[in-house]
Simulated assay, not measured.
Amino acid sequence: MSLLNVVLAIVFPPVSIFLNEGMGGTLFINILLTLVGWVPGSIHAVWVLSKQGERARI
Rank of each mutant, 00 (worst) to 15 (best):
V11T: 07
I58C: 02
I58A: 15
L35T: 12
I31T: 02
A56L: 09
I10Y: 08
N30L: 04
V15H: 03
I17F: 07
I17C: 08
E54W: 05
P13A: 03
I17P: 01
P14W: 01
K51D: 14
G41I: 01
V48F: 14
I10V: 15
P14S: 01
L49S: 06
L3R: 15
S16K: 00
S42V: 00
V15E: 00
P13I: 01
I58W: 13
A56S: 14
M23Q: 10
W47N: 11
G53R: 10
T26C: 07
L27P: 01
L32M: 09
M1Q: 08
E21M: 09
T34K: 09
G25A: 14
L4F: 14
L19P: 05
G37A: 14
V46I: 15
G22N: 06
S42P: 07
R55H: 11
S42C: 05
G24Q: 08
Q52W: 02
I43C: 09
E21T: 03
E21Q: 12
W38I: 02
K51A: 09
V48T: 09
V6K: 15
I31G: 05
L49H: 06
S50F: 10
R55V: 10
K51V: 09
S2W: 07
G24W: 10
V46K: 01
R57L: 15
I10A: 13
F18H: 12
H44C: 12
M1N: 11
E54M: 10
G37S: 13
I10D: 00
G41R: 06
L19R: 15
S16N: 00
L4E: 10
V15D: 01
L3M: 10
N30A: 11
N30R: 00
L8A: 08
S16H: 06
G22Q: 04
F12W: 10
I17M: 02
T34A: 02
S2N: 15
I31M: 07
F28G: 08
A9C: 11
G24K: 06
V36S: 12
L35F: 12
F12R: 08
N5T: 12
V15C: 03
L19A: 12
W38S: 00
N20C: 08
L8R: 02
F18I: 05
L49E: 07
A56I: 09
V15M: 11
I58D: 15
N5W: 07
V7K: 13
S16F: 07
G37H: 12
P40R: 04
W38Y: 03
T34F: 06
V46R: 05
V11Y: 06
E54H: 10
S50Y: 13
